[in-house]
Simulated assay, not measured.
Amino acid sequence: MANRPVFVPKTEGPALVEIVNVDFAWSAGLSIVQKQKSIAALHDSFRQRFPQARVLEVSSKSAAELGRKLSAFNMGVTSRNGQFISVESLFQSSKVFTSATGIQGPFRELMLLSPKEAKQSELLKNAGQLKHFSYCPSEQREAEIWALEPKSAFYDWLYLNALNIVPWKEELLAYSAFTDIEFNPVRSINCQAYSVALWCALRMRGLVCDAIPPRDAFIDLITKFTIHNTSDGDTTTMSLF
Rank of each mutant, 00 (worst) to 15 (best):
G76R: 01
E18A: 05
A197T: 11
L130D: 00
Y159P: 05
G76W: 03
D180H: 05
A53M: 04
L198V: 05
P137E: 06
L130A: 10
K119T: 00
S176E: 01
S114N: 09
S138Q: 09
F50E: 12
G67V: 02
Y159K: 04
S59M: 00
N126W: 09
D44Y: 03
I165H: 13
F218A: 06
T101N: 15
S71Y: 13
V96C: 06
K95S: 11
G102A: 12
F178L: 14
R47L: 13
M204N: 06
V33M: 12
E18F: 04
G13T: 15
F183V: 09
A118F: 01
T78D: 06
S99K: 00
K95R: 10
C191H: 03
S89Q: 11
E18W: 10
E65P: 02
A217L: 06
R68N: 03
I212V: 14
L70R: 06
Q83K: 13
A127L: 08
F24D: 04
A193V: 09
G102V: 02
F7C: 07
E18N: 10
V22Y: 00
M204I: 04
I19H: 03
S134D: 00
V8M: 09
R47M: 15
A211S: 14
R203Q: 11
A211D: 04
A127H: 12
E144F: 00
L198F: 02
G13Y: 12
A217N: 06
S38H: 01
R203L: 00
A147I: 01
A72S: 14
G82V: 13
Q34G: 04
A72F: 14
A64I: 00
A118V: 02
A118N: 00
T237N: 12
S89G: 13
R203M: 02
C209F: 02
A72C: 06
A197W: 00
G233A: 07
V77N: 05
A28D: 05
S27R: 07
E144G: 03
I85N: 07
K125E: 11
R49H: 06
A153M: 08
F183G: 00
C191A: 10
I181N: 01
V22N: 05
Y175K: 09
S99I: 10
R215D: 00
